[in-house]
């Protein structure tokens, strides 16, 4: 069972704010819930927003957008990727 860290909470809060997920709170997003499709229901414009978020907040420049599909699968996947690659 993945551990809930400050990064998980921080990411959820950033996603809610950046993607204007009105009426949604941090506790509404599960760590292993799919962010796209049937889960949170994000779309391709949101994916672009998340790419900018990674670079702006964590100094990670995603050179291959195709990788986004895997990285943005869930909060857990995003947090793991950020921990391994962050420069700030």
């Amino acid at each position: 069972m993945p551990i809930m860290t400050d990064l998980h909470t921080e990411l959820k809060a950033s996603i809610i704010e950046q993607l204007n997920l009105e009426d949604m709170e941090v506790s509404d997003i599960e760590n292993d819930e799919p962010l796209f499709g049937d889960g949170l229901g994000l779309d391709s414009i949101d994916a672009l927003e998340l790419i900018v978020l990674l670079e702006k907040d964590y100094g990670i420049k995603l050179t291959d957008p195709k990788k986004g599909r895997e990285i943005f699968e869930s909060i857990n996947k995003m947090a793991d990727f950020i921990e391994a690659n962050r420069t700030k």
């Binding site: 927003e49 900018v52 670079e55 702006k56």
Partner: peptide, 12 residues
């Protein structure tokens, strides 16, 4: 953001 990190939504 000093002309960087521009997100697409507001522009679109």
């Amino acid at each position: 953001e000093n002309e960087s990190f521009l997100t697409p939504t507001a522009f679109i």
